[in-house]
Amino acid sequence: MKLTKNIFAVFAASLFTVLLITPITSISNLLWLSSVDMPITLWSSFEVILFDFQRLGMPLFVVFTIAFILAFSVAGLISKYTNYGGKYLYALAGAVAIGFALILMVELLFQTQLLGGNRSLTGKILHWVAGFCGGYFFYNLFSVDRTYTFIVRFFGIFYAYLLLGFVLNWIFTPAIAAAEFGFILDQLSDDAQNALLRDFTSFFVATFLFSILGAITLNPTWFFSAGVIYYGAAIFNLTAIYVHGTPYNKIYIGEIILGTLPTLLALTILYKNRTQKKHE
């Protein structure tokens, strides 16, 4: 359980660091756009920051997780075999991990600076500070005894993070979102456009919120609700193919996956609740 808990503490610290780091690129970009008189508003800023958190954040999450696993393992060894240790050691490890990860991404992989926010010295310092906070967050997660709810909550939030991409696309760039589902938005009638946008947006926003609420309250009903919706989508996708004769597609596989994760979370909560009651 301890090892599992530590792994999920790394995942959580990584996601937390992504949350801190992606706005650095967003804001540096928004500041430049504003400097050339582009009409930046609160709404467009909100759009950029959220999109960056989701789309830029995904690959960074993978990179940071690898960097953190290495850095926190070294910090753990130092802590075990020396007198040094504690939250600041892990915080420092986090800062070093992010610093090295960003340098190596340039030197070994791309030879160019893909992270716009990391091009200036200020940006670099802010990234290191974010890594420091990530390490500190990790220490706080793994140094306290935690139950299975920590892992359930992480999965619930990560599931919502995955869905956030759909949510943002349907809210901010509906034509692109519609195209991904095979619709050419401006070729639909006004009524059809309205129906498509409201129903799809509602579908993804609802499941996103169900997952967030499930993670916060640990009430399995929220997770079941998300699961039912995606399983329903998979079942009626297959119905459309085999009963109504629409062309075959593999989208139902994704829908089953998206339905399975919250369902498993809900079942875990139910099982744990029942076990606890038996012990009582």
């Binding site: 970009n29 789309r55 830029l56 893909l114």
Partner: peptide
């Protein structure tokens, strides 16, 4: 890069604007 129809390779938004 003030207006563009693309996004960055990293996934980041380069500009939310396509015209000005």
């Amino acid at each position: 890069p003030a207006i563009t129809y693309g996004i960055d390779y990293s996934g980041a938004v380069i500009s939310p604007f396509t015209e000005k």
